[in-house]
Each structure stands twice: as C-alpha cells, then as structure tokens.
Write a protein that binds this DNA or RNA. Structure first.
Length: 488
RNA sequence: GGCGGCUUAGCCAAGUGGUAAGGCGACGGUCUGCAAAACCGUUAUACGGCGGUUCAAAUCCGCCAGCCGCCUCCA
C-alpha cells in the first residue's frame, strides 16, 4: 500500500509521490526562540518527528529541515523587557528547546537553519521579488505586493477581497494593499540590523522560511508542515513569495497539525493556562506524553487534562509490562510452533495504518493488541512450555514491535526494568519516602507473611499505599510501584 | 460577516458505502492468604436531530441544532 497524506492545499488525502523518486525534502516551521516551549510545540514537533522517522523507515532518503526563528519582534520585545541582548536571549531559548526535545526523544533534523545565518539568501530572494515586480520599497521597508500573485489564498481557501472586507487587517500607510506584508523591515534605533540594498534592517517573518527551505531543499520540494494556525497567513505568504520569485510550484504537500486545548479551553497567555513541556515532564514520563500526543489523530484537536494524561501513563506501563513478559517468554523457549494472529505481521499492519495519513491511534491499537496477546500466552502458559511459542518465533515479534514503537513512535525506548525504575525513582522525592524505607517495610511484611500474620502484612501494605506506594506480589517475589500522582 | 472543521459507549478515541478498532473506567469470573498485576467475559441493535440517495450509510447529499478553529502574534 502506498502512503497517503492529507494535503491542506487540496483538502484531501493524496497518494504521496515525491518530486524525486525515493527522496523526500521536508521543511517544518520551527519555533521562535523567545520563551519556553509548551505542549502545543510538543505536539507539532513530535508529530513531524514521527513522520520523519516513518519516512526514513519506509526507505526514503529524507532531508528534514526545521528552522529556528532567531530574530523577530517577539524576541526583540522580550529582550527589551528582561534587559538582555536579543541574540543571547535567542541563544538561551535554543538551548532550552533542545533540553525539552531531547527529553521527549525527538530526533535532530538533517538541517536546523537559523534566520540570522541566512540574511544573504533572504536579501537575494527579496531582490528577485523586486526585480520581478512582486515587491516594492517603502521607507526602508520592502513589501510583498499580494495583488501581483493571482493565486494568493489558494492554501487557506481565502479570497483577497473577502480578507480586505474582513477589515481586521492592519492599516498601514506604507502598504499599497492592506494584505501586503513585510519582507524586510527597516531597523529602528537599537534594533538588530543588517545592511541591505534598502538600508539597514532585518527580515520579515515569512521570508526566512522561503529562503531557507529553498536553500536546502530546492525550489520545489515535497512536504511543508507546521501548526494549523500557520496556514494563514504564514504559509500562504510563503507560497506567494516563493512561487512569485521562482515561477514554479513550491511545496507539494502541506501538513498541518491540530491544536492542544487545556481542559477544554484554548491555551493562551491571556488565560494563563499555557503548559510548558518542562513543567509537564516533572511529573509525566516523556514517553507518556508522547503516547498521549499520538493517541488521537494529528489533525484533530487534542485536550490535555488529568484523565487523558493518566490514561496515557497507564497505557504506557501496560505496554512496558507486556514487553517484560515477552522477554520472559523468550527465556522459556517453548514448544508451540504457532503465533496468535495479533503477533503476526505486526510491522506490515503497522505500516498500513501509518500509510493512511499517519493514523497513529490505529497504530497504537496494533501495539495494544500485541500486548494483550503476549500477556495471554504468559497467563495461559504458567510453566506449560508446550503453550509458549519457541524463541525463534518470539524473537522476531519483539524486534517487530520495537521497530514500530521504539524506532518510529519513539515509545518503549527503554528496557522494561529500567523504565519501571525510572518511573518510581522520579516520584519518590515528591512522596517523601526513600527506597530504603520501602524495602525495609517490604522485609517486615515478608516476614509477617511467612509467619502467617496477614493482618500485620496487610497493615504494612495499606500504610505504604497511603504514602503512594503499591506492592504487588508476583511469582518472582514482591515488587513496589508508585501510584499515579495527581497531575496539574 | 467570510472560510473551514467537529458531534461515535461512563470517559478518551479509530472507523468515511457492507453491518461498530484500541485505551481508560465499571461489573462478573480465573489466579492470589487477601490484594495488585495479568487473563477471560460483560459494558454503543448503534454512531447529534430530521429528511433523502442506495440492495446496503456512522460513512454520500440536504436541512436543523450544538461545539470549535482560522480570518491579528501564535504549534
């Protein structure tokens, strides 16, 4: 089956046919580095991370470009507010970005260009637009003339006359048409600036993405992505600039991810409900967050709330537990020569779901089905080797599951035992209890159980439960876990 | 006002013409000293409402209701 992608440009799912067979050029709008990244950024970055991984896994030679907008009004404003050099501020938040994304297990793109390092290309592109009559100078600014590009509005489905009638466009005497937008902004005193044929200034926001994407991917490339809000005006403007300058089609497939709401409310600074990745990761395992982000289709809105994030944590633990069970079954090396259907052709079925516009919820269902099948074998077997599939049958199952979950979705990247350890240790401080204390209580309880003093044993277990620690007696002895913490 | 989208069980969430994936929760059972975990079973004659097309619709069309996004910096 071939990969099909929903293309914002055509408003339908289309078969993915790259410009050059076997190769993919993908550009995703990165962040403007003036603040910490929030859960919305996480959704976008994780989505395109998964798309990137899947394309590579599918055999494409992928060049993935994700930029940093490191000069911009917001950066300048913030720098002025906090009294920091704008360049240092941007630099600082690039470091913070990497801290979060590394924690989330996001792979580095092939190229991560910064606007400030591409001023030459930006100026060249602007020059081209002026030469071709698509842009004009106005008091040191350079504006793109929307009227000069007939197809303006084709991405967002807007018509220029309706947009003007909407009258929410900023009135600016410099503009010939209210929809015209800045390619180059004349520098005000004290602002970052570069020399240019139009005087000292800095690039407008939209032009950097056109310049950098074409620099690394060519005039015409395959995938361009970003958050749904970038469709208009940012991506619309990119198309206008790029196609007006080159006279050729720009990106072929446009992918936009839906927004994250916080407890059914739009996330916004004014509501004060912006959730930083950093803060979430204090209580939520990074893979739980990834699982949560991939649990609904990427174009749908996604609601972040206590229940959903807890469900993701529980689900992740279930998957890890099944992986541990799978390892144990492998040690048994049983005699059964048949696998249950949930464990057959996992990769192929997984690919089918991903090929359908990256349907990660269905992909996850395949993993959960596999987990249940593994656990079923483990339960039924109970020492009966004839019921357990042979090692030669199970080993490929494990590698198939990991090829899907670890390599593509970025889930189950840890060893099961390490995962459990990670989760419990991450929360011990919050619970105000040490592992030594827990182990000591567990010893006391074991002794009580040996003595058949079950009342005392249960009391110890209940006391620990009140402190947030769960005890589970298994075939290999007792283990302890941390109860789910309240999320905020 | 313009454009676009959504409405599936207690909750989350797939499914876009052939008779409802998966997860969480709940209930019953197996296992366990008791639990927990795990497994098994049950949990939507039904997909916002009303019409229409079709042998057949959650899936296509129309109307209505409710919710949401974009049109301004925004992932």
């Amino acid at each position: 089956m071939a990969l099909r992608i929903y293309n914002t440009l055509t408003r339908q799912k289309e078969e993915f046919l790259p410009v050059e067979s076997g190769k993919v050029g993908m550009y995703v709008c990165g962040v403007t580095v003036y603040d910490m990244c929030h859960i919305g950024h996480a959704r976008s970055v994780v989505l395109f991370d998964v798309i990137y991984r899947y394309l590579v896994d599918s055999g494409f030679q992928v060049k993935y470009v994700r930029n940093f907008t490191d000069v911009d009004d917001k950066i300048i404003n913030r720098a002025n507010q906090v009294g920091e050099d704008w360049k240092r501020l941007a630099e600082r938040f690039i470091v913070e970005f990497y801290t979060d994304m590394d924690a989330l297990g996001v792979l580095r793109p092939t190229v991560e260009p910064r606007a400030t390092e591409h001023i030459d290309q930006i100026e060249a592109l602007i020059g081209q637009l002026i030469d071709r009559g698509h842009a004009y100078e106005a008091d040191g600014d350079v504006m793109f003339a929307v009227n000069s590009f007939n197809e303006y509005g084709k991405l967002s489905g807007k018509k220029t006359d309706e947009l003007i009638a909407g009258a929410r466009v900023e009135v600016d005497a410099k503009k010939r048409n209210p929809l015209d937008f800045a390619l180059w902004k004349a520098a005000k005193p004290g602002e970052p600036q570069w020399e240019s044929p139009w005087g000292p200034g800095r690039p407008g926001w939209h032009i950097e993405c056109s310049a950098m994407s074409m620099q690394y991917l060519g005039k015409e490339f395959d995938i361009h992505g970003g958050g749904a809000d970038l469709t208009f005006p940012h991506h619309e403007n990119e198309i206008a600039q790029s196609e007006a300058a080159t006279g050729r089609p720009f990106a072929k497939y446009w992918i936009h991810n839906g927004f994250v709401n916080i407890r059914s409310e739009k996330m916004s600074k004014s509501l004060g409900n912006v959730l930083n990745i950093r803060d979430i990761l204090q209580r939520v395992h990074p893979e739980s967050l990834r699982l949560f982000l991939l649990s609904s289709h990427y174009r749908s809105p996604l609601d972040y709330n206590e229940t959903s994030i807890r469900e993701a944590s529980v689900g992740l633990e279930r998957l890890y537990a099944a992986m541990a069970a799978l390892d144990e079954l492998g040690e048994v090396d049983g005699k059964a020569q048949q696998l249950p259907e949930e464990l057959i052709d996992i990769r192929e079925r997984f690919s089918q779901t991903m090929d359908d516009d990256f349907n990660t919820p269905r992909s996850l269902a395949i993993l959960f089905d596999a987990a249940r099948a593994v656990n079923r074998i483990a339960t039924q077997a109970r020492g009966a080797r004839k019921l357990v599939p042979s090692r030669s049958l199970l080993e490929p199952v494990k590698s198939e599951i990991l090829a899907c979950s670890r390599d593509i979705l970025g889930l189950l990247t840890e060893e099961p035992a390490g995962f459990l350890d990670h989760v419990r240790k991450a929360h011990l401080k919050d619970l105000g209890i040490t592992e030594e204390e827990i182990l000591s209580f567990m010893d006391q309880r074991s002794q009580a159980r040996k003595d058949k003093d079950f009342a005392r044993a249960d009391k110890i277990r209940e006391d620990l439960a009140e402190r947030g620690i769960l005890l589970e007696d298994g075939p290999k002895g007792t283990i302890w876990k941390v109860k789910e913490l309240q999320q905020s």
